[in-house]
Computed example of a mutant assay.
Amino acid sequence: MENYTIEEFIRKTQQDEQENDYFELETERILEVNLTDTVWAKAGSMISYTGQIKFERERMLEHGVSKMFKKALTGEGTSLMKATGKGRLYLADQGKKVTIFELNNESITVNGNDLLAFEPSIDWEIKLMRKVAGMMAGGLFNVQLSGKGRVAITSHYEPLTLLVRPGEPVITDPNATVAWSGNLTPEFRTDVSFRTLIGRGSGESIQMEFKGEGFVIVQPFEEVYSAGPTSS
């Protein structure tokens, strides 16, 4: 017989205090950061914390003029917050599934809307897909992350990884594309005939094509991006 007492609920859902990795999956949809110094996270992603932690919005010139310029072009989706101090920090984003990667002098490119957090040791650069900016609401930007350290990304439901091989390109819907290996540069196909769009959303008039060798991560969900900056 099921036990529905409050004590049983707490036992099943309480935090695991034995975990001490910098990034831990507290649940598949909540990231625990065992903070000892600094972490960069998506603005608005904090759901709880213990200890002495201070939160700051990314300052205008914090990462230099070039990144400030790119941020101005890409809108609210690139907003980061810096958490500093010591304690346990819990991050989440609209109930999306969290995946952690340990980069070892590797590179991964993440859709800007799907980046949850990364260690300060990681190098990053915002890249705006200008060709597609006028075709999709708010355009499409991504963040290239490289170096050594942990990165946490999010996806709606279970992600699927597709392997890209020479001579075998992979085509994806931009709204369902979460991340890809840093050595790949997607091209955009806009030659979809009008007949294929009948009864479908206009977002499917654009496709991303990945050629070469690497991987692409997609989600079973077409994300809709806002047309510009929003408050959070």
Rank of each mutant, 00 (worst) to 15 (best):
G138Y: 04
L116C: 06
K148Y: 11
V132Y: 07
E125M: 09
V110C: 03
G138W: 09
F141K: 00
G134H: 05
E119G: 05
S107A: 13
L116G: 04
S107E: 14
A117S: 04
E125Q: 06
I122C: 08
D123E: 15
N142K: 13
T109H: 08
F118A: 09
S107H: 02
A117T: 02
D123A: 01
I126K: 11
N142Q: 14
G147I: 03
N111I: 00
E119D: 11
W124L: 05
M136W: 04
N105E: 10
F141T: 14
L115F: 01
A137C: 10
Q144R: 06
N113I: 06
G134A: 07
L116M: 09
A117H: 02
F141V: 12
L140S: 07
G147E: 08
R130V: 13
S107I: 08
G147R: 10
F118M: 10
L145G: 05
I108E: 03
E125K: 00
G138R: 09
V132I: 15
G134L: 07
L145P: 03
P120V: 08
A133D: 05
L128K: 13
G138T: 07
M136P: 14
V132C: 03
G112S: 15
I108W: 11
N111F: 00
L115I: 12
R130D: 11
L140T: 11
A133V: 10
M135L: 09
T109P: 03
L145Q: 02
G139I: 05
V132W: 04
A137K: 14
V143K: 01
A117D: 03
I108K: 09
K131N: 08
L128I: 13
G147F: 11
R130S: 12
V132K: 10
V110T: 14
N104G: 03
K131Q: 11
F118Y: 06
P120I: 10
A117F: 06
R130Y: 06
I126S: 01
F141M: 15
F118L: 05
M129I: 08
I108C: 08
S121E: 07
M136F: 08
P120L: 08
A137I: 11
G139W: 02
P120C: 00
L145Y: 06
L116E: 00
N104T: 07
L128W: 04
A137S: 15
